[in-house]
Design a protein around this nucleic acid. Structure first.
Length: 423
DNA sequence: AAAAAAT
């Protein structure tokens, strides 16, 4: 199976080659022919499955087949980072074409976006808020939209974008082709699908289960020891890029600061940062300038960075879905990845649910030589430490009992291996 | 409760 089979325009084929794509991924194989036919699509797929190219390539083909002026394709995405990433994919895949794309989102000057729209960008990749803003201003005109893509629809719903999506959809022609992608299918998304899709082809790719190339491990630990454990773990583990998730924006900032002070090449990413800082963090993480990225769930979905060898849940996510999405950032493209989760006794309720979905018990690990009995600093709420030095004190035996993993875990973790980022 | 997103 090769990309040549789709008979894309030579200029599109040129972009595919330049990107080094050879074999289409499963979702590409399934959805490209359907989209080329002009059918509406309900796609159940995670990001990182090649989903972006799966809709970008047929869109470009359609636009080249019947040249016309004006904004003709609209892709709506939940986060600025994802919109930017899709826009960049279009620029790369379309480098040999004359098609123009513009990313439309908040936090940055709107004038460059307005000029690109005026100059006649055929493809718009947008977050809902800024797009509506530009529409009200008369700078964006959706009356000529031929293809509408709603990406990560379930997340847009989570973020309360549904009313915005409806407003946007209403401003596009009814006879458009619509593609709706969602990782999960809650009833609200099913409802939205009924509203915006006409006789859709339903494509299901893979399932919600994480890539089998990812090995999972839990590190039971008390809250106040997480940062110390994290640093020791990173110093002793051979890693490529590492993505660390925390529960709050504030904690993201704090952990990143502590790690920076300790000499780790780290950046932080959370929604309160200026857009330029967000971009710097992500691009620096992509190109390896920062080996480590500490982030909120802003980075949990869609963000596509190759070479993430480890995802570390500094805090457990709130839901199994969130866990799946976070650890989906590693183990991509058949590469191996490790997912480490720090779990306090308070956070362990979710563990059972995750294990249920994974269909296996996750290995509990303790880090050799780590002082699990270190007392909490005064004022941090846990002044109940004594000088007992047994490392498993206070953690229920059931919680710690190590169960051999089903498959041999593929971690490159060895207690004494010197990390490449020593100190 | 927290996160993201228009200003």
């Amino acid at each position: 199976m090769s990309f040549t089979k789709f008979n894309f325009h030579p200029r599109i084929q040129g972009g595919i080659q330049a990107m080094g794509y050879t074999t289409p991924t499963p979702i590409q194989q399934k959805s490209i022919p359907v989209i080329l036919q002009g059918r509406d699509v309900m796609g159940l797929a995670q990001t990182g499955t090649g989903k972006t190219a799966a809709f970008v390539l047929p869109i470009m083909q359609h636009l080249i087949d019947s040249p016309r002026r004006g904004t003709r394709a609209l892709i709506v995405a939940p986060t600025r980072e994802l919109a930017e990433q899709i826009h960049e994919s279009i620029e790369e895949l379309g480098r040999k074409t004359t098609l123009r794309s513009v990313a439309v989102y908040g936090g940055v000057n709107k004038n460059p976006q307005i000029s690109k729209l005026r100059e006649g960008a055929e493809i718009v990749v947008a977050c809902p808020g800024r797009l509506l803003d530009l529409m009200d201003q008369g700078a964006a005109d959706l009356s000529g939209i031929e293809i509408l893509v709603l990406d990560e629809a379930d997340r847009m719903f989570d973020m309360g974008f549904l009313p915005d999506i409806r407003k946007i959809t209403k401003r596009t022609p009814e006879k458009r082709q619509t593609l709706l992608f969602s990782a999960t299918m809650p009833s609200d998304i099913r409802l939205l699908a009924r509203e915006v899709l006409r006789d859709p082809v339903i494509l299901r790719v893979g399932d919600d289960a994480p890539a089998s190339t990812v090995s999972h491990a839990l590190y039971p630990v008390e809250q106040h020891l997480k940062t110390a454990l994290l640093m020791k773990l990173l110093r002793e583990t051979q890693t490529e890029s590492v993505l660390i998730f925390t529960r709050t924006k504030h904690r993201t900032t704090r952990v990143a600061m502590q790690m920076k002070t300790a000499g780790f090449p780290v950046a932080s990413l959370q929604g309160d940062l200026s857009q330029s800082r967000r971009q710097d963090a992500l691009s620096g993480f992509r190109n390896g300038r920062y080996q480590i990225l500490v982030a909120t769930d802003i980075a949990a979905r869609g963000i596509d960075v190759t070479r993430i060898s480890h995802v570390i849940n500094y805090d457990m996510p709130d839901t199994v879905d969130a866990y799946t999405h976070r650890i989906g950032r590693t183990g991509r493209a058949e590469q191996e990845g490790d997912a480490f989760s720090f779990v306090t006794p308070e956070e362990r309720d979710l563990v059972g649910n995750i294990e249920h979905v994974l269909g296996e018990r996750i290995e509990r690990r303790t880090l050799e030589g780590f002082d699990y009995a270190l007392p909490a600093p005064a004022g941090s709420g846990g002044g109940r430490r004594s000088s007992v030095s047994h490392t498993r004190r206070e953690l229920p035996a059931e919680f710690l009992s190590a169960v051999p993993a089903k498959k041999p875990s593929s971690h490159h973790f060895s207690p004494r291996a010197s990390g490449r980022r020593g100190r």
